[in-house]
Design a protein around this nucleic acid. Structure first.
Length: 282
DNA sequence: ACGAGCGCCTGTCGGC
DNA sequence: TGCCGACAGGCGCTCG
């Protein structure tokens, strides 16, 4: 599922709480249950549990597609990859009966209250870390696309530092943090740029359009609480705003040309062949 | 430096 | 209806 807007939505829900559950920060971790070993990336399982026991969660943040939970000692970090969610669940019913875990909960953090934090993932690609220094996980990530440090001038420079197909470059987390397959298709359509254009061949005007498209599409995604893709994630409504992604055979909302699907960098890619001119075309 | 292929998982959908 | 392959939002690895 989750790209930047979906992770941002999950982060805010945990950080601020909802009508149904309290905020996560301020809780302490009593115990940890692991149901799929390979999710723990670092350190080994026993140290992972031991390092978390009794620790206080002091904040909830996002960096790229990572969820970041600073602790009073150390940092808990999670990445959902292709599917999943993190949510607060009740541990015990009003009658005092233990509530069983959800089917796809892979890791459960029992908190010092009637709540637990569940790391939920159907496909088990997700990863978690407990580290002293979050930079050991985030160190290679590119800039946050919605931060003040990310400017049109910087993007233009970054694009010209590479000669790569623009779509795989935008999805490279070392280039920019947070973009995935869906939002990249929407961004390139919004900027009228073909996904196979070489990054260093974009004009200053095109890189300016790309900058605006990146911020606009991400902001709209966050405003819509992200995209819900069938059973993967049932958060927001952004999928109804897709202009080209998963709309093969439908008319382009701008010009009516039929949306085309092809493969770029092994990923299904949707474009309007008229709005997004192929490299080499005038 | 770059791009292609593949593996990791489970579930859904379309075709036969 | 049932089976089977293709495909899905990510990412890290190897190889040429």
């Amino acid at each position: 599922m989750p790209e930047l807007p979906e992770v941002e939505t999950i982060m805010r829900r945990l950080r601020d709480g909802t009508q149904d559950h309290p905020p996560l920060p301020g809780h302490k971790i009593q115990s940890v249950e692991i149901f799929w070993d390979r999710i723990i990336q670092e350190p080994d399982h026993e140290s992972f549990k031991k390092n978390l026991q009794g620790k206080a969660i002091i904040d909830t943040r996002r960096r790229g597609k990572f969820l970041h939970f600073p602790l009073n000692v150390g940092h808990l970090i999670g990445h959902l990859r292709m599917s999943g969610d993190m949510c607060m669940e009740k541990r015990v019913t009003a009658e005092g009966n233990a509530i069983p875990k959800e089917k796809y909960d892979q890791i459960i953090f029992n908190l010092n209250s009637n709540w637990r934090l569940a790391f939920n993932s159907i496909r088990k690609f997700s990863r978690m870390w407990v580290v002293e220094d979050p930079q050991s996980v985030f160190g290679e990530l590119g800039p946050e696309p919605l931060s003040a440090a990310f400017t049109p001038e910087r993007l233009d420079q970054m694009l010209h530092d590479h000669s790569r197909q623009i779509k795989p470059l935008l999805m490279d987390q070392k280039f920019i943090a947070g973009l995935g397959n869906i939002y990249t298709d929407e961004i390139l359509f919004c900027a009228r740029i073909h996904p196979l254009r070489k990054s260093n061949m974009l004009s200053k005007q095109e890189s300016g359009h790309l900058f605006v498209a990146i911020q606009e599409v991400l902001r709209k995604g966050i405003q819509s609480s992200g995209a819900s893709l069938d059973w993967m994630y049932r958060g927001g409504e952004f999928q109804s705003l897709f202009k080209v992604h998963q709309r093969e055979g439908e008319p382009c909302p701008e010009c009516g040309t039929i949306v085309k699907k092809f493969i770029v960098g092994q990923r299904g890619t949707y474009i309007c062949p008229r709005c997004q001119k192929e490299p080499g075309a005038a």
